[in-house]
């Protein structure tokens, strides 16, 4: 119980301060482009009541899950290839790094030309924006495996695929998870950019909603939902897996 209080109080105070500052700014300015927290709260409740926000959230999460899963598969595959072969690494790594540093929005025109103004274009942007991070994370994780474990494995008689599967991959897992955590953030941002810019007809998503919202309060309500999802997925999904792996190995610093 006490641990929960210790963990919960600081972020709650942080958010309260943010809202207080925002409320003060909204109070002293009279422009309608800075709505008060209360107005945004009302817009949020209306959005939830008329079903637009829940539907958009659900569609967006589905797209996110699909895109990120695809990015994990593609990125991990490429990362393993890079780790396995020196010539491949020399030849392909610069390309992957170039993709990694490419801003997500740069993919939008290409996505629209290839896939049209469709759902697939949005997913393409999200995958293209996140798989390079997974690939580089996989490569780094495997290269950082402590040589001691590999040496121990080899002296125990592990060779070839068995050595990779039983020693190298599990040893690389904590570093890989750090990369996955970063890559999911990329996927999320790229997906939002894709949804916002590609106005796929009939498609709904938080990004689309952002584009269609008429007033600032509704836009901010959607931004709040996006932010909350970001924190929730990061902490409860990716973070939980990461903490489990680290706790099992005694890598968690207990505070």
């Amino acid at each position: 119980m006490r641990r929960w209080i210790r963990e919960l109080v600081p972020p709650v105070v942080g958010i309260a301060v943010l809202i207080a500052v925002w409320a003060m700014i909204a109070a002293v300015t009279t422009t309608p482009s800075i709505p008060s927290p209360a107005q945004v709260w009302t817009a949020l409740r209306e959005g939830i009541a008329d079903g637009s926000i829940p539907e958009a959230t659900w569609k967006t999460l589905l797209r996110l899950a699909f895109s990120f899963l695809a990015a994990l598969v593609i990125g991990t595959g490429i990362g393993l290839l890079l780790a396995a072969s020196e010539p491949v690494r020399r030849g392909v790594r610069p390309i992957v790094v170039a993709l990694l540093t490419t801003p997500f929005v740069a993919w939008v025109p290409l996505a629209v030309i290839w896939f049209g103004v469709t759902e697939r274009a949005v997913v393409f942007v999200a995958v293209a924006g996140s798989f390079p991070a997974v690939a580089i994370a996989t490569l780094q994780a495997i290269r950082q495996v402590p040589p001691l474990y590999v040496r121990a494995g080899r002296t125990l008689g592990a060779t070839g695929w068995d050595l990779q599967r039983s020693i190298v991959f599990p040893a690389a897992l904590p570093a890989y998870m750090v990369g996955v955590q970063q890559a999911w953030g990329f996927a999320w941002k790229a997906l939002m950019a894709g949804e916002l810019i590609v106005p796929a007809s009939g498609a709904t998503g938080l990004g689309h909603l952002l584009d269609r919202s008429g007033d600032v309060a509704s836009i901010l309500a959607v931004v709040a939902v996006i932010a909350v999802i970001g924190v929730a997925v990061d902490y409860f999904v990716v973070g939980t897996i990461d903490r489990r792996i680290r706790a099992r190995r005694g890598l968690l610093t207990t505070t």
Binding site: L148, L156, G250
Partner: peptide, 26 residues
């Protein structure tokens, strides 16, 4: 078999898991 200066146990496996893996490799 080699005993290293650091125990070189695999941190993702229990003690039993470590011994079991070595037996499987053997």
């Amino acid at each position: 078999a080699v005993l290293f200066q650091e125990p070189a146990l695999f941190p993702w496996l229990s003690v039993r898991g470590n011994v079991d893996l070595a037996l499987r490799f053997a």
